[in-house]
Amino acid sequence: MKKRLCWSSLLTAIGMAACVTINIYFPAAAAEKAADKIIEDVWEQDATTTPAAPISPVEQEGLSSSPGFAWRWVFDLLITPVAAAEPNLDISSPTIKRITASMERRYPKLRPYFQSGAIGLTQDGLVAVRKAQEIPLKDRTQVNQLLAAENNDRNALYGEIARANGHPEWEAQLRETFARRWIQKAPPGWWYQNAQGQWVQKR
């Protein structure tokens, strides 16, 4: 009886995992990888790296001895190959390359204003004036034009990546991914908006 229940539970777990693999889902890991590549190209040496913290041997031993580890192993066995086979998002279309090149050319002009705190990164993946007083009066028109052009490129970029990969419905999720990665890869001292829309200086 116990053996029958065990097999029944195992089959249930396998069935649930199989359902997970056939669902169409937003490829979050691939989106982050694509965002990081574009951000690093645009910001060059200014983009910071945020590697994942490795699991220590002690933590690994604790995980492997936990009661749920066997079931997690079943899920990982079935789902991991699918995730590993997940293709990268295509960011090589001519339009994406043109937008990225435009942002690269503009960045050296925006960089001093990011560093001074005059402008910052918004919670929706754009840029905005944070403290106009930090911008000399004679430069404000030019800075506003630069910000408008940058935001036009960023909006176009998120939509074009979604379309280039055959899923225009992914645009909002791509925007969220880029918004998060712009902030995470920004150098210390830059300003960004938190989830409440408040300006915060990165440490």
Results as ranks from 00 to 15, higher is better:
Ala47Ser: 13
Pro54Cys: 05
Glu61Asn: 06
Arg105Cys: 06
Val58His: 02
Ala52Met: 02
Ile96Ser: 01
Glu61Thr: 10
Asn88Tyr: 01
Ile79Met: 07
Asp90Gly: 03
Pro94Ala: 10
Thr50Gln: 08
Arg105Pro: 01
Ala83Arg: 14
Trp73Gln: 11
Glu104Arg: 14
Trp71Leu: 15
Thr50Trp: 04
Arg98Phe: 08
Ile96Phe: 00
Thr95Glu: 15
Val82Arg: 04
Val82Asp: 01
Pro87Ala: 09
Trp71Ala: 13
Val82Pro: 00
Trp73Asp: 08
Asp46Gly: 03
Ile79His: 02
Val82Gln: 02
Trp71Cys: 09
Ile91His: 00
Ala70Phe: 12
Glu61Phe: 07
Pro54Leu: 05
Thr49Val: 03
Pro51Lys: 01
Ser66Ala: 15
Leu63Pro: 01
Ser93Ile: 09
Gln45Ser: 14
Pro54Ala: 03
Ala53Arg: 07
Ala84Phe: 04
Ile55Pro: 00
Trp73Gly: 04
Thr49Arg: 02
Thr80Tyr: 06
Ser64Arg: 10
Ser64Asp: 09
Ser92His: 11
Ser92Ile: 02
Ile96Asp: 00
Ser92Asp: 15
Thr95Pro: 02
Thr95His: 08
Gly68Trp: 09
Pro94Met: 11
Met103Pro: 03
Gln45Thr: 14
Trp73Thr: 14
Val42His: 11
Gln45Cys: 07
Trp71Pro: 02
Asp46Pro: 03
Ala85Met: 13
Pro54Tyr: 05
Ser92Thr: 13
Asp46Leu: 15
Arg105Ser: 14
Arg72His: 09
Thr95Lys: 14
Val74Asn: 04
Ile55Glu: 09
Arg72Val: 12
Ser66Asn: 08
Ile39Gly: 02
Ser93Asp: 10
Ile39Ser: 01
Thr80Ala: 13
Trp43Lys: 07
Ala47Asp: 05
Glu86His: 04
Glu40Val: 12
Leu78Cys: 07
Ala83Asp: 10
Met103Val: 08
Ser66Thr: 11
Ser66Tyr: 06
Ile96His: 00
Leu63Val: 09
Ile96Asn: 00
Leu63Cys: 03
Glu44His: 10
Ile91Arg: 00
Glu61Tyr: 06
Asp41Asn: 11
Met103His: 09
Leu63Thr: 06
Asn88Ile: 00
Ser65Asn: 12
Val42Ala: 08
Arg105Thr: 15
Arg105Trp: 08
Leu77Val: 06
Ile55Lys: 06
Asp76Leu: 09
Val74Ala: 06
Arg105Asp: 13
